[in-house]
Simulated assay, not measured.
Amino acid sequence: MTIRVLLADDQPMIRASLRIILEDQPDIRVVAEAGDGVEAIERARGTGPDVCLVDVQMPRLDGIEVAGALAGAPTRVVMVTTFDLDEYVHGALSRGAAGFVLKDAGPGLLVEAVRAAYAGDALISPAITLRLLRHVAARGGRTVVPRADARPLSARETEVVRAIARGRSNQEIADALFLSVSTVKGYVSGVQAKLGLRNRVEIAAWAWEGRLVVTP
C-alpha cells in the first residue's frame, strides 16, 4: 500500500521540507506539488492523489476554496498552516476538510494526519483543537447538522465523542477508557452512522456546538 500525496503551498522551501518528511516513510509518496490554489486543483484532478496537504493561504485560490473544489472526489484534503485559523474553520468544515495540522506540529503528527485521512478518518492537531472548536461554538448557529433521524448516543459513545472533541487520538482514547483501539474505532464509526457525520472533525465540531464539551 502506498499513499499518494499532493503538496500545495506557495513556498517551495515548505514543500521541500514536507516532501522530505513524508517520503521518509515507506508507505507515502509525493506525486505532485502546487504553488497556488488553482494549480493545486488542476494537479489533483490530473494525478488523483489520495491525500492533499493544502496550505490555507495561497495565491489565486485559498485552501478553503481548494477543499470545496475537490469535495466529493476520492482525494481527501488536510489543511496545513502556520496561521491563526479561527476565521477559516467554518469554511473548511463545511467543505469536508479531513483535518487541521500546524506546520510546526512535528513530523510524527503530519504523517499521522496523512495516514488518518487515507484511512477515511480525520485528525485535528491537538495544539489547536480546543481553540479552534471553542471559536466554532462561540459563533452560534450550526457548522455541522446531524441527520434528521439521528439516534441518541450511548453513554460510552458520548465519552468517545468528548475525547475526540478534545483532540485525542484513538490510541489515547483507548488508553483512557481501557478499551482496545479497534473497539474505539467501532464506537467512532457508530457515532458517524447515528449522526450522519463524515469524520472526526465533524464529530468534534458537533460536540462543541452542542455544548457536549466545555472550556476547561
Rank of each mutant, 00 (worst) to 15 (best):
G37V: 01
A69Y: 01
I41Y: 06
A105N: 08
L70D: 03
G141N: 11
G140H: 08
R45E: 13
L123P: 02
G63D: 03
D24K: 14
L110D: 03
V213Q: 07
V51M: 02
R198D: 08
L6D: 01
E87Q: 13
G99D: 02
I3L: 14
F100V: 05
L153Y: 11
V78C: 02
G120C: 10
I21M: 05
F100I: 05
V101G: 01
L110N: 05
Q25E: 15
A71C: 08
E202L: 02
D84F: 07
T143S: 13
G48V: 05
L93R: 02
G186D: 08
K194T: 04
A138L: 13
I164R: 01
A204P: 06
A155W: 12
A150N: 11
R19N: 09
A69L: 02
A116I: 04
A44F: 09
A193N: 12
A205D: 02
T75A: 00
G99M: 02
F100A: 04
T158Y: 09
R200A: 10
T47E: 14
F178I: 08
S180M: 12
T81C: 07
V51D: 00
T81W: 06
L93A: 06
I164F: 00
S125K: 05
E202G: 05
T82R: 10
R4A: 12
L7N: 06
P12I: 03
P74Q: 09
V191M: 12
